[in-house]
Amino acid sequence: MIHILTGPFGSGKTELAINLALHLKNAEEDVSLVDLDVITPYFRIRDVADFLSEKGIDVVTVKRELRHVDLPILPQRLVELFTQRERHVVVDLGGDDDGARVISSLKPLLDGRQVRAYFVVNVFRPFNETVEEICQNIGRLSSRSRLRFNALVNNANLGDQSTEEIVALGERMVSEVSKVTELPVQWTVLSEELAERLNFSAFKYPVFVIKRFMRVSWEDRR
């Protein structure tokens, strides 16, 4: 199964990709996590690659000596990976149109394979603040990526200032988007910190609890 995470710039695809890979790994599956982010210069899978490798995840990213190069380099082994049927392959794309375009170039490898493409959205990100904007983004990214999306993911959050209301507002909007696009909602995403405090029954969609990996060094203050 190939799981592809796409969506607008900064919608939380990388965090979700890492957590999805860890979740599948915990279910004792063979998991590869593919870093196809050619957009973001910081906060990428390659920055936590060593930790993930220790967890037994096959991290597919650019060569170590090229990790900090400011060029849109794709990792090797993609052909081999996308043709292995037993494996779960989680693909993290870069944001917006240019990020989505990368997977379009790999379409021949995806044809005939089991693919689940998720559109991840945080309604608190610029240019994703209305149902209309989100629907337009879905249409545009679907055409750029040449993917047929299977599901939406509600990742409404304001970082450390997230609350139940923030997440619930995301659910209401994503639910509207779901009606318009006829795409089901796969998950509502909660950070570990928030999940500890909230009752999941308050939410309409299945909750996926994630640990945040893209942190800054001073966040251990609390």
Binding site: G10, N122, V123, F124, R125, P126, E129, T130, V131, N157, L158, G159, Q161, L169, M173
Partner: peptide, 17 residues
Amino acid sequence: MKTEKLMMKGNEAIAEA
């Protein structure tokens, strides 16, 4: 429905400001 707060990258926030 426009929200009062946004999650922004510093670069985006500087531009909008």
